[in-house]
Amino acid sequence: MLNKVDILGVEFDYTTQQEILSILQEKIKRNKKAFIVTANPEIVMYANKDPQYMHILQFANHIIADGIGVILGSKIVRKPLPERIAGFDLMVELLSIANQEGLRVFFLGAKEQTLEQMIPKIKRDYPKLVIAGYHHGFFKGQEHKVNEMVKEAKADLVFVALGFPKQEEWIQKNLDSFEKGIFMGIGGSFDILAGTMKRAPAFWRKLNLEWLHRLIQQPSRWKRMLVLPIFVKKMFQYRRKRLR
């Protein structure tokens, strides 16, 4: 069982990308279910304001540090996490495993147009995985239909791109109705797979500046970025409180 690091009440896995991949592969082999949350400071702060969402995070099997701010927070409380695990990178590694092993994958979320561009690329880049199904993220009033689609797909991997908190809410609400599967919220990753949004170049990622690249692409995100200094301040307060 993985050790946990408490970041403002959110329990992050003390793990590397390779370790979590090995754990998930084993769960897939044994037809076990798992709920994965890829969390950044924005998600942590939201959970601190919304008790219901915090409860959903507590329901998750694995919460991984998708955000350099979380790594910084772990250092502030003197329990440094080993590395940042970008949700997109983890998803791509899981797609590669699915391709190698012929696993069944379901894609839920994003716009219909995004899926229309993404699915042919998935077929081209991962020809041996089985696309068990897909559905766009605008299904209000059709929740039962979508639930049945996912259930009938019997997927080994279900990627949910509804954005937080909706993707985690959907997974937590429906997980019990499925027999198996690794369920993972992956935000806007379908847009990158589809080619409608570019990911930061490797050089930017190496410098932990992926957040800045996204801000340049989407200037409307600037208000969301304001959460980081507040998060850092809270982490220092949290450390002082725990050291008393």
Rank of each mutant, 00 (worst) to 15 (best):
Q172K: 11
E169H: 08
I76P: 08
F236Y: 13
A65V: 01
E112C: 00
P41R: 09
K198Y: 04
N61H: 15
L21D: 06
G87Y: 13
R124M: 07
Q142C: 01
S220H: 10
S22D: 11
K29I: 05
L108F: 06
V227W: 01
D191V: 00
E93Y: 14
K75L: 02
F164R: 06
K111G: 00
Q58E: 15
K29G: 04
L243K: 14
H213K: 04
P41E: 06
I85G: 13
E143T: 07
G195N: 12
K123R: 14
N3T: 11
L8E: 08
H144K: 11
D191M: 01
W170C: 02
R239Q: 15
A47W: 07
R30E: 13
V146H: 11
L228A: 00
K49C: 00
Q172C: 11
I192Q: 08
G109C: 03
F159E: 07
H136V: 02
V130W: 02
H213R: 06
D6W: 11
W211M: 03
A65N: 04
I63R: 13
F12P: 10
M91E: 10
L215I: 09
K223W: 09
K223C: 02
F107S: 04
P127M: 03
A161W: 08
L94H: 04
T38D: 13
L72F: 01
K75H: 14
Q172E: 15
G141N: 08
K223T: 15
Q142E: 12
L212D: 12
Q52D: 14
L24N: 07
E116K: 14
K223M: 10
W222K: 11
L2W: 09
I192L: 10
F164T: 09
G73N: 03
A153F: 08
R124V: 00
K223I: 08
G141V: 02
K151R: 11
M45H: 02
D89I: 05
N40V: 02
G185K: 10
P82E: 14
V232H: 03
Q113K: 15
A65G: 00
F164H: 10
S96G: 12
P201K: 06
A65D: 04
N3G: 10
F203L: 10
H55L: 07
K154R: 11
M149G: 02
K140L: 00
L21Q: 10
F164N: 10
F59R: 15
E168C: 02
K121A: 05
E19F: 08
A47M: 09
